[in-house]
Simulated scan of single mutants.
Amino acid sequence: MPYTGDVTPGGPPDVRALDALTITKMSVGPMDNNAYLLRCATTGEQLLIDAANEAPRLLSLIGDDGLSTVVTTHRHMDHWVALEEVVAASGARPVAHPADAGELPVPCDTVHDGDSVRVGACELEVIHLVGHTPGSIALLYRDPAGTAHLFTGDSLFPGGVGNTRGNAADFASLLHDVSTKLFDRLLDETWFYPGHGKDSTLGAERPSLPDWHARGW
């Protein structure tokens, strides 16, 4: 079955196999959060993006091959309910941005804008996007054999940037960072994977940037 990125809480995961990296997307309840398991094709090493909830399902998805790293995209609780249990069961290294790491239930190694996080032979670039929270991050994988793949947490969705709760300064910051660090740098073909709901591409969303700016959310 071709990858669509359409997953539902309690439903089966969707799998996208690239040459060097396999991406498995699964939705966990009760808030329809996306969790992403990345597996290096060369080494078999695995990394999880957002241990959001339902630790038993996440651990079943991880399987017997172990987990090296858990990256939390931001501090909001619906993205880390299962973090403590997954880390305890797997021994994985938890990673977050320092501006949000103190709000998480386990001590984390911290990363900054421009740093890299590795999963086996594959490298993920950390992109700091300020606004949804002070320490929100995205992870960028530049596939040597194809397009770029971007994991945006709650900073970018199909149809707009993440919720800034009516705070004009936070919205301006987030739209600025998303515009300059994502849309200005990356090609239209870049596929992005958000913290909730369906995927999209930067090209599909790019024409709407002026509308997002004008509406203010």
Rank of each mutant, 00 (worst) to 15 (best):
V126D: 09
A52V: 02
A168V: 10
S136L: 06
V130D: 06
L140I: 02
P98Y: 05
W80V: 03
R142T: 09
G91S: 12
A172T: 14
V161I: 13
S200T: 09
T43S: 07
T72C: 09
H128T: 10
V178Y: 10
D65C: 01
T152Q: 04
L186D: 02
I127D: 05
C108Q: 15
G102P: 03
V178H: 06
V86L: 09
G146I: 11
G44M: 06
L38N: 06
G66I: 07
G11Y: 06
T72G: 00
L124K: 06
M77P: 10
R118C: 08
D188L: 02
K181H: 10
V95W: 13
Y36Q: 05
P94T: 14
T24L: 06
G10N: 10
T43V: 01
Q46E: 04
D19W: 00
H149C: 01
T8Y: 06
T43M: 00
Q46S: 05
V126L: 03
E125M: 11
G44S: 06
A169W: 12
T133L: 09
W80P: 00
V95N: 04
A92Q: 14
D6Y: 15
L48M: 06
N163P: 05
V111F: 02
A169V: 13
A17P: 00
N34H: 09
G166F: 14
L186H: 03
W191E: 13
A51H: 15
L37V: 08
P94V: 08
V86R: 11
L104Y: 04
D100S: 08
E205F: 04
F183R: 08
